[in-house]
């Protein structure tokens, strides 16, 4: 792997910053130059949030533009569809099938679009009920590591490195639960 561009997308409040923290430190530890770009402030209040993670021999720009991502890790289905155009042809959309209604849907102005994933062509879509997997492991907050486990299968980084990156990033009392969620998702 010469380089990898990962976009982590979701809804403000879903806690996707932890996923970028784990991924960033993992890739830095694997010897890559790494840049991670985060979103803070107003859009965190229930809006679409995007984090970029880029790794390679030398990374200049901290952002990813349409057609540049190898992976989009989507914490929510609609956000997965929204950011699918950021994938390179043949890129992989790893998407949590959870639906969180945006305000225009809540107010009934428009419907939550149905069947948005099947119309995406030229990319690989890997959908998972990450919320159910996370809750089975003990906490909805483990959605982060459930989705990272799907990504882990594509990246040439040994399983043990993922385990230690997770151990370093989460509070000790949540380590066991997160590792359980990661393994279940990885083995699935």
């Amino acid at each position: 792997m010469n380089s990898v561009n990962v976009m982590i997308v979701g809804v403000g409040g879903q806690g996707s910053l932890l996923a970028s923290k784990i991924l960033g430190s993992l890739l830095l530890g694997a010897g890559y130059d790494v840049k991670v770009s985060e979103v803070h402030g107003m859009s965190q209040r229930g809006g679409s949030v995007v984090t970029y993670v880029r790794a390679g021999e030398r990374v200049c720009s901290p952002v990813i533009e349409p057609g540049e991502a190898d992976f989009v890790l989507a914490f929510e289905k609609l956000e997965g569809a929204r950011f699918a155009p950021y994938l390179k042809p043949g890129g992989v959309l790893i998407v949590n099938t959870q639906e969180i209604d945006p305000m225009p849907v809540i107010t009934g102005k428009t419907a939550y679009p149905s069947d948005i994933l099947s119309s995406l062509s030229g990319i690989t879509v890997e959908a998972a009920d990450a919320l159910a997997l996370a809750e089975a492991a003990g906490s909805a907050k483990a959605v982060n590591v459930v989705l990272l486990a799907k990504l882990a299968k594509y990246l040439p980084v040994p399983y043990e490195k993922w385990v230690s990156a997770i151990e370093n990033a989460v509070a000790p009392r949540f380590t066991e639960m997160n590792l359980k969620a990661f393994k279940t998702s990885y083995d699935q």
Binding site: R45, G46, G47, P66, G67, A81, R82, M103
Partner: peptide, 20 residues
């Protein structure tokens, strides 16, 4: 040139920030 990619779907509902 810009890299190839899927077109953005303008019909997708927007997700603006809102009060919690």
């Amino acid at each position: 040139p810009e890299p190839q990619h899927l077109p953005a779907d303008p019909a997708l509902p927007a997700r603006p920030p809102m009060m919690c």
